[in-house]
Design a protein around this nucleic acid. Structure first.
Length: 219
DNA sequence: AACTTCCTCAACCGCTTGCAG
DNA sequence: TCTGCAAGCGGTTGAGGAAGT
């Protein structure tokens, strides 16, 4: 990191230093957390001698200094998991990150944006979007038919922030296309693999659909 | 070689959530 | 309940480097 870069960032109104962290700051924060544990970030910033906001300390620790973090390229396996989980939960980066040990929400978010979000305007994407729409509509129709046959046993479940807990509790992932902000059909765990198979099909891979558009489409 | 454009990712911002008093 | 504070989360920004012209 250049001196010029550090100088260009300056301080906040509260007097906290901003910008890239120096190795000295990293050392201070690491040593403090080793001694006192993480959490209570506002007191970390005061007691450690760092002239950084609690927010900044937390972010630096979580995204960069925390032990067990993986550095380097996302593997194809990890990429597959990201795609699966993003199909389930959308931009719930922290939730997705829990299923990728050593990866941070920030890292996954950045990866998604750079690898999948950027190609959203291509003609391929348009075709893919239509395919997705058809797939989802068929899926919903199919579910509704099954629902009629099975009665109340197959109900749409509300998708909310506790969906991961629901999955753990019931071994079932659920999404309700009728709920605002949700865009994908109800699916259980077995369905996820078929969904991903569908995505892998044709030229969809590497040019993944833009979920933001999907949201509008399936509302 | 010089310039421009694109890509990556660390870090910030602002909003939301959770919790103690 | 209500309020205020701390922590967490997702979106956005911007600097540096790589790739292209």
């Amino acid at each position: 990191m250049s001196e010029r870069m550090i100088m260009s960032w300056g301080v906040t109104e509260q007097g906290w230093r901003k910008g890239p962290w120096t190795p000295q700051e990293d050392k201070l924060l690491t040593e403090y957390v080793k001694l006192h544990g993480d959490g209570r970030w506002s007191s970390v910033s005061r007691s450690s001698g760092l002239n950084r906001s609690g927010k900044s300390c937390r972010l630096r620790w979580v995204n960069y200094l925390r032990p067990g973090l993986k550095r380097g390229q996302i593997t194809p396996q990890e990429e597959g998991i990201i795609i699966e989980l993003h199909a389930l939960w959308g931009n719930k980066w922290s939730t997705i990150a829990r299923y990728l040990p050593g990866r941070t929400d920030n890292e996954i978010k950045n990866y998604w944006r750079t690898h999948f979000k950027k190609k959203e305007k291509s003609p391929k994407k348009q075709r893919k979007l239509i395919k997705c729409q058809n797939f989802n509509q068929n899926f919903v129709n199919q579910q509704q038919e099954e629902q009629q046959h099975l009665g109340d046993d197959m109900k749409w479940a509300m998708m909310n922030t506790n969906v991961d807990h629901k999955m753990q509790d019931n071994n079932m992932g659920v999404m309700n296309p009728n709920v605002e902000d949700q865009c994908l059909p109800v699916m259980n765990n077995e369905d996820v693999s078929s969904w991903v198979d569908f995505l892998m099909d044709d030229e969809l891979w590497g040019d993944l659909w833009n979920l933001d558009n999907q949201v509008a489409t399936f509302k």
